[in-house]
Structures are given as C-alpha cells and as structure tokens.
Simulated scan of single mutants.
Amino acid sequence: MTTSVVSVTPETGVSEVARLLLERHISAVPVIQAEGGLVGMVSEGDFLRRTEGDGRLHGSWWLRLFSGPGESAAQYVKTHGRSAADVMTQDVITVTEDTPAGEIAHLLETKRIKRVPVLRDGRIVGIVSRADLLRGLAAQRDAPVASATVEDETIRKRILEEMSASDWAPTYGVSVMVAEGIVQIWGFVDSHEQGEALRVAAGNVPGVKGVELHVSNIPAHGWE
C-alpha cells in the first residue's frame, strides 16, 4: 500500500479538491473528519457526474414514480454542492492491513473501483491501488514469495519514518517493500535526485542488504 495518503476534510471546497487531484496526479482522495475517521471518498467519477448532471433525474416516467423526491434532492446536492461532503461517495469499501492481496484484487475487479483505503482501528493508514498490486507482482518476478520477517517490518518502518521526517521526500505515490533485507521502492518521484535520495536513505538503515529502486518521474497524465 501507499502510506503517504493525501486527504481532505468534509468542509474542503469542491474547487480545492479538484486542484488537489490535478496537482498531486491522483484520481481520488479520502475525506477524513477531525477525529480521524474516514467518512467518504471524492473521485474523478464524482466530478464527472457533477459536470454531466443538472440536478434532475432522467429516464422513463414510470421509473421516476418509484424514485421519489428524496433521490432527486440527493442528486441535486451531488451536482450543485460546494464541499467535499456534498459530492463524496459515502459508502466506501475498505480493507485492513491483513487483507490478502488476492482478496484486494478481487474487490477492485468486482466492485469496479481503482483503489481501496486501508484502515487500522477505524483510521486510514494507507491506500492500495491497482498500480500498487502490479508493483507487488513485479517484485516477485525473480524469486519465490518471501514472507516479511519482524526485522523486515522494522526496516520498512524506519525507512518510512526517515521519509516522513525529510523535506525532500515524496509525500505520495511511493511504496516501500522489504523482504529478507532487500528493499524495493516503487512509484513516482519529481526528479532523479529525489530517487537517489530515497536509495541512500534506505541503504543507511541497519539490516538492509540491498536497495532496488523502481521509480520514474511523474507522468503528465497522472497515475492510479
């Protein structure tokens, strides 16, 4: 999962959410309340429905008989609201840190979603996207699956702490995996120098046997 999660609050303005998606090259952002709980997600799809909608329900007249004014009012809020709380999707599918990768892949496919938040005690600690799953599969290309040990988890935690404390480190779009002392860093960076700094930071952590850097500059079209 990607642990550096960009988020907004329910009160964040719609224009600010749109700007954040464009600047960070992401297609969705979680909505988190002041207490830290996840209350929804705003995605590109929500904005598409906003631009396409006019606040009215369309379709056969007999279907509208069963929808009632409540559904029409909810649609109006989606297409005319000004805050993240107005346009967000509230029924968010989530997983935990222990959810198997295969189950996550099944969720993404069957629910037709691009990413899923990872929760711990009701609070978001990361996001797993389709790209994260592909990176994980690519990391297994040369060797059998290796189970992460307690030492590996300690190494990964120290690398993430170093990134969090550094003003040069990427704040999104980077995944760190450690197996048998080998660190693999996947994702996007702003520059070649930023990637090299990640390599050095990981290599300086005690217990690291090697660092494999699989990063590239952020593409103009964004990433999933």
Rank of each mutant, 00 (worst) to 15 (best):
R120C: 08
A201Q: 00
V211E: 00
R64C: 04
V116C: 00
D86M: 00
P30C: 07
M163G: 01
T99Q: 11
T149Y: 09
R82C: 04
A169R: 12
A146E: 14
E52V: 12
P100H: 06
L57Q: 07
T94R: 01
T9E: 13
I93D: 01
D98I: 03
R130S: 13
G55P: 11
E16F: 05
E35I: 03
S4T: 11
P100W: 02
R56L: 08
G187Y: 04
V8C: 14
W223I: 11
R115S: 10
A73M: 05
T171W: 09
A18E: 07
G36R: 08
V8G: 08
A201W: 00
V39Y: 03
P170W: 08
I159M: 06
V211R: 01
A165N: 06
G55Y: 07
E23D: 13
R158P: 00
G13Y: 06
G68Y: 05
G210V: 07
E44Q: 15
R115Y: 07
T96F: 08
T79Y: 00
I26M: 04
T110P: 09
F188T: 06
K114E: 01
N204S: 13
V176S: 04
I182S: 12
T99H: 09
E97H: 01
A85W: 01
D167Y: 06
Q140W: 10
Q184L: 01
E71Y: 04
V31K: 00
P69L: 03
G55K: 10
V17S: 08
R50Q: 12
V118K: 00
G187A: 14
A131R: 14
T94Q: 03
R120N: 05
E196G: 07
V145W: 07
M41D: 02
M177N: 11
V128H: 00
A84Q: 07
L198T: 07
T12P: 02
V5H: 02
T171H: 14
K111T: 05
V8T: 04
L134C: 11
G70R: 15
E35C: 01
H192K: 14
T3L: 09
M177K: 03
W62V: 13
G37T: 04
T149P: 07
L213R: 13
W186K: 06
N204K: 13
A143Q: 14
A73G: 06
E212M: 08
P30E: 02
P100D: 11
E103M: 10
S27Q: 12
T154W: 06
K157N: 12
D142N: 13
G173S: 15
K111H: 15
V200H: 08
A138I: 05
G36S: 13
A165Y: 07
W186E: 09
S7P: 02
R156F: 01
V42I: 03
Y172M: 12
S67M: 12
A146W: 04
V5T: 03
T149R: 05
T110W: 04
T96I: 07
A34R: 10
L198N: 05
E161N: 14
E153V: 03
E196A: 10
A146L: 11
G55S: 12
G122S: 10
I104V: 15
D152W: 04
R156N: 09
R49H: 10
A28G: 14
G207S: 12
W62Y: 09
E11A: 14
E161A: 15
P100C: 09
S15V: 13
R135D: 15
E71G: 08
P30R: 00
G207I: 05
T3P: 02
H80K: 13
A146G: 03
I124F: 02
V87I: 13
R130N: 08
S191M: 04
S43N: 06
T79G: 02
T89R: 03
